[in-house]
Amino acid sequence: MQSTQTQISENNQLSQSIEKEVVFELEGITKIYQMGEVQVHALRGVDLKLYEGELSVLLGPSGSGKSTLLNILGGLDTPTKGSVIYHKVLDDKDEIIDLSAASEHQLTEYRRFNVGFVFQFYNLIPSLTARENVAVVTEIAKAPMTPEQALELVGLGERFDHFPAQLSGGEQQRVAIARAIAKNPDVLLCDEPTGALDSKTGIKVLEALQRVNQELGTTTAVITHNAGIAQMANRVISLSDGQITDIHTNKTLISPKDLSW
């Protein structure tokens, strides 16, 4: 146990030396859920840093705590113990938000202006068209792209006025990605984005994600239990039993279409 911890902090140091700005700084994150009379330890003392512009994959089996970690990063949940510092990337000054001590209102504002979310089951608004689903977000953002631009970016140029029920699963997920990136978020968080898709469609979705990450430089974290996907990430953070077991940096990134699924 002790050795793993040491190794992780060495890895962190290593990454830092690339001289990228830290976006998330997690220290001693513990999350305990009270399920009736049983206490579930979802996270047991996680330390982690995520860097500007990197695409990281959180890998782990179900129950490993990866979702809990993503929820905490996304400001949907707060840790029981430990601190989560979010460094907002600004040109001149460094704005810091302590997510572990933020109020409900602060967390909403944090999500509103900084985070883009992609859900496993897309969670599109069925009563809005593709364009309008994106507009839901751009209407409240500070410096968004247009819904059309966002949809073009994920390769859905012709399907602006389709309702979700008229789109395939892959198309729906790409609308969801467009919706997430349209506000030009600093952070893009994806929860099993290909979990409900077949491999062919999944690749299209991953390509869209990678393109966003490379072209816009959005710090991206993807949850998956599919180890194959990990090869397209800068860093792979493996979780098991509420703890980080390994952080692996890919020297070369594999394009989604070459991933072994």
């Binding site: 949907l76 909403t108 979310f117 409240i140």
Partner: peptide, 15 residues
Amino acid sequence: RELASLRVLGLRRSE
């Protein structure tokens, strides 16, 4: 589900 998703996307409770 719809409303919770919108909350995740950063809409305020009033919205």
